[in-house]
Design a protein around this nucleic acid. Structure first.
Length: 261
DNA sequence: ATGGCTGCTTTGAGCAGA
């Protein structure tokens, strides 16, 4: 039995990225994919195209901004208990989808960007994260095998930043944001990427401007966290830098982790 | 010093992303 392959990818518009995404699915053949920034309303979601590619899609979308989706390869496991929002919040922003897939509980987050430290959007980010922490804790209490993945918009460590002095205290690197990441780890997760030796200066996002990608001016802000039983069964985690190359790329690259079944 | 790109929007300049 080959390992289960999990991926997360902020695709920055499903409409624009669909050809690249389908090609990537065919090459990488992940079993479960967490997508963020689909930017598409549910009635327009191209689920038939995914079905033709061998994937069932579950989604929580909106026009223009945000939007998340789960892709589950046919035969991976039964999908149940799909959740599309943090509980007890009246929030139109579609940033959460969670589902049981076989014996796994998958949580896909598109954490708010926060724009600038001290801004209204920054306060919204931290408040959203507090509610998310409570949600994750409750999920973990019910399910031992939890995958917490997505675009966290947090670079947890200076190693995850191309120029730590330039970014110190800035958005995605501020101490409160890094504190949220530590809180989530503290609930009982491992950062799958750091379970393994990694090349220095490996990132998952590069600005479209200033030739940031060829200069490797990036941040590692997309993550796959695994609860203890899954971390113990994880055999690899890597960032697929190739997916950031070529014509019309997303500004993010996918993260891919493998777990022994 | 500034902004530099991309995607989106009742189509066109402005917002948002990170």
């Amino acid at each position: 039995m080959p390992p289960l392959k999990l991926a997360t990818w902020n695709i920055n518009s499903l409409t624009v990225r669909m050809p690249r995404l389908l090609e990537w699915l065919g090459v990488v053949r992940p079993d479960i994919v967490c997508l963020q920034e689909t930017k598409i309303e549910d009635p327009k979601f191209p689920h038939l195209d995914f079905a033709a590619a061998g994937y069932a899609a579950h989604f929580a979308g909106q026009r223009t901004y945000n939007g998340v989706a789960l892709l589950v390869r046919d035969g991976t496991g039964a999908v149940a208990d799909v959740v599309r929002a943090l509980p007890d919040r009246d929030d139109p922003q579609k940033r959460v989808i969670a589902a049981t897939v076989g014996d796994l509980r998958i949580i896909d987050f598109y954490v708010p960007n926060g724009q600038g430290v001290g801004s209204d959007k920054y306060r919204y980010k931290l408040e959203w994260c507090r509610a998310a922490t409570a949600f994750v804790a409750a999920e973990l209490a019910r399910h031992p095998r939890v995958v917490l993945s997505g675009d966290f918009n947090v670079a947890p460590d200076d190693r995850d930043v191309h120029d730590p002095d330039l970014w110190r205290g800035q958005i995605m690197c501020s101490e409160p944001e890094r504190g949220v990441f530590r809180d989530w780890i503290g609930l009982g997760f491992k950062d799958s990427f750091r379970l393994f030796e990694q090349p220095e200066k490996t990132f998952s996002w590069w600005d479209y401007r200033q030739l940031a990608f060829p200069r490797n001016h990036g941040l590692r802000i997309d993550h796959i966290l695994l609860s203890s039983p899954l971390a113990g069964a994880c055999t690899s985690c890597r960032i697929d830098r190739n997916a950031r190359k070529g014509a019309k790329p997303s500004d993010h690259a996918p993260v891919i982790a493998e777990i022994v079944r």
